[in-house]
Structures are given as C-alpha cells and as structure tokens.
C-alpha cells in the first residue's frame, strides 16, 4: 500500500520526528512496504473469531492497593538532559 507524502508527513509530525524531504521520501517508501507486509493478514478470514489477546494467562493479573515504590527521585531523574532541583525541565511550553 503506497503512502502519500502528506500522510507520511503528518505521521512524522505527530511522532515529533523532524525529517527533510529526502528522508521523508525514504521513510514513506519503507512504511508502505511495512503496511503491505502487515496487510497480508487481511487474507485470513477471521469473521466470527474472537480476538486472541494472549497465549498464557487468560485474564489480567492484578495488584493489591499498597504503596511499594517511590522515594527515589534521583533514580527517576538520572537520565534527565536538564533539571532544576528535583524537577525535570523542558523548553517552556505554555501558550
């Protein structure tokens, strides 16, 4: 399935990935092939077959309402490119 350039540009924008025209063209073609490959699944008739959501546990595992984590701000901030005290900082995003 060929992807038109406008759609490719929109997907890149939503994912906040900056691409020049040449990169965008490369990505557009690659994404088209990925969609074609995934599209093969459409050949299987799954009418009236319930969705398979996993192979092991049938239902979601649940946790008790107990505080078991936190108090580790230094770990949380360890990869922050920029910080102020115990806050992450980002370029100002207010309107």
């Amino acid at each position: 399935m060929a992807l038109d350039p406008a759609t490719a540009r929109r997907v890149a924008k939503l994912a906040r990935i900056g691409l020049n025209d040449q990169e965008l063209e490369t990505v557009r073609v690659q994404m088209g092939s990925i969609l074609d490959w995934i599209g093969m699944l459409d050949e299987v008739d799954v009418e009236n077959v319930p969705p398979m959501t996993g192979t092991e546990h049938v239902t979601l595992r649940q946790r008790e309402d107990v505080v078991t984590d936190g108090g580790r701000a230094e770990d949380i901030l360890s990869n922050a490119p920029d910080r102020a005290g115990a806050f992450f900082t980002v370029p100002k995003v207010v309107e």
Binding site: D69, G71, A73, D75, L77
Partner: peptide, 23 residues
C-alpha cells in the same frame, strides 16, 4: 486509592517533586 493505577507509587497530594514516581 493509596497507590497508582499501574504502579506501586503513592497518590498522596503535595509530596516533594518526583518523590512519588516509579520507573
């Protein structure tokens, strides 16, 4: 609730910044 929806960090209001955060 005491803990968050998908982690064991506390939900209390007004804690020190980033002190109630799990990975």
């Amino acid at each position: 609730s005491k803990a968050k929806l998908f982690s064991g960090a506390s939900t209390l209001f007004g804690g020190e910044p980033n002190s109630q955060v799990s990975l």
